[in-house]
C-alpha cells in the first residue's frame, strides 16, 4: 500500500500520457485480450487434464465450476457465494461513498486554500504512508472486531487518493481559464462551480479509479484477518481446509468485480468527461 502511494501521482500521469500516445491505435486490443484470456484458460485445462500438477495446487476448471454451483446454492463458511459477495460489495460501496463524500470537498478545499492544504496534508500523508493492515489492529482495539473498524479502514484507503486527486485537479486548472471567466464578470461562487469543479473532474475520476484499486486490495486483506463474511473470509476459510477450488472461485469472483469496476469507470469517464485530454 505504501508502494501504491508512491506510484499514485506517477501512474495517474502515466495513464494520461499513454492515452495520448496510443489513442487512435487501440482498435484491436479487445480481440487480442480475449485471445490471451482464452489461451490462459486452455493452459489451465491442459495442465489439469494431463495432471501436470497435483489437484491440490491447481483444481480443474470443472471442479471450480462444480464448487461454484455448490457454494452458490449450499454456501460455504457461514454463507452462500451471494452472501459473501454482497458483504464484500457492501463494504466497498459504503467505503467508496464515504471516500467520495469526504475526499472530494476536503481535496477541493486543500487545492483552494493554502492553510487547509498545510494543515490537512500532514495527517493524510502520514496515514497514507502506512500499510493499512499495520494499523488495522489499532482500529480493532478502538472500534471492536465488527463492521465499523473495517469500514473505517476501507474508507481511509478510499479517502486519500480521492482527496489527492481533487486537490491536484484544482491546482491544474489553467489560470487563463479563470481569467477569462473573471473578465466575463464571474464572481467567486461562479468561478468555483462553472470553472474549477468541471476542470477538476477528470482528475477526480482518476483518483476514484485508484481509490477503487486500493479499497479492493485492502478489503480482501482485511477480510482474511478479521471477518465473519466476505470473499476474503471465504478464501481464508477454504485455505484452512486446503479447499483450493473454493480459493480459486473466490479469486475469480474478485477478478470479475475488479473488471466490473474498470468497465464502470470507463463508462463514467466517457459520459462525464468526454472532453478529457482535448484542448
Amino acid at each position: 500500500m505504501s508502494a501504491l502511494s508512491e506510484q499514485e501521482p506517477l501512474s495517474a500521469a502515466a495513464l494520461r500520457v499513454s492515452r495520448r500516445w496510443t489513442d487512435g491505435k487501440t482498435g484491436g486490443t479487445a480481440l487480442i485480450s480475449a485471445a490471451t484470456l482464452l489461451a490462459i484458460l486452455l493452459l489451465w485445462v491442459a495442465t489439469t487434464h494431463w495432471h501436470w500438477t497435483s489437484p491440490l495446487f491447481l483444481p480443474s476448471p470443472s471442479e471450480v465450476a462444480t464448487q461454484a454451483v455448490a457454494t452458490a446454492l449450499d454456501g460455504y463458511a457461514n454463507g452462500t457465494l451471494l452472501d459473501h459477495l454482497l458483504a464484500s460489495l457492501g463494504r466497498i460501496g459504503l467505503a467508496l461513498t464515504i471516500g467520495i463524500v469526504l475526499g472530494v470537498p476536503v481535496g477541493l478545499l486543500m487545492g483552494l486554500n493554502r492553510v487547509a492544504r498545510g494543515v490537512l496534508s500532514v495527517p493524510i500523508d502520514i496515514y497514507w504512508g502506512l500499510p493499512p493492515l499495520a494499523y488495522l489492529p489499532l482500529l480493532i482495539i478502538w472500534l471492536g472486531i465488527g463492521e465499523s473498524s473495517k469500514i473505517l479502514l476501507l474508507s481511509l484507503s478510499a479517502f486519500a487518493p480521492i482527496c489527492f486527486a481533487a486537490q491536484a485537479g484544482v491546482r491544474s486548472v489553467p489560470q487563463e481559464r479563470i481569467n477569462a471567466a473573471l473578465s466575463l464578470g464571474a464572481d467567486t461562487r461562479q468561478i468555483f462551480f462553472t470553472i474549477i469543479l468541471p476542470s477538476a473532474l477528470p482528475e477526480i475520476l482518476t483518483g476514484l479509479r485508484i481509490a477503487i484499486g486500493a479499497t479492493l486490495s485492502t478489503l480482501v486483506a482485511a477480510e482474511l484477518i478479521a471477518a465473519q463474511s466476505g470473499l476474503g473470509y471465504m478464501i481464508m476459510s477454504a485455505a484452512n481446509f486446503l479447499a483450493t477450488d473454493v480459493v480459486f472461485l473466490g479469486l475469480i469472483v474478485i477478478a470479475v468485480i475488479a473488471f466490473g469496476f474498470t468497465v464502470l469507470m470507463r463508462f463514467l469517464e466517457r459520459r462525464l468527461v468526454p472532453w478529457k485530454g482535448k484542448l
Binding site: 481559464r177 481569467n179 473573471l182 473578465s183 462553472t194 468541471p198 484542448l279
Partner: peptide, 19 residues
C-alpha cells in the same frame, strides 16, 4: 484592481470551456 466584466478580453490563447 482586478479583472472585471467592464473590460471584455479576447485572448491570444484559446480559453473556451471544453465541456
Amino acid at each position: 484592481e482586478g479583472p472585471g466584466g467592464d473590460r471584455g478580453v479576447v485572448f491570444q490563447k484559446d480559453t473556451l470551456l471544453p465541456w
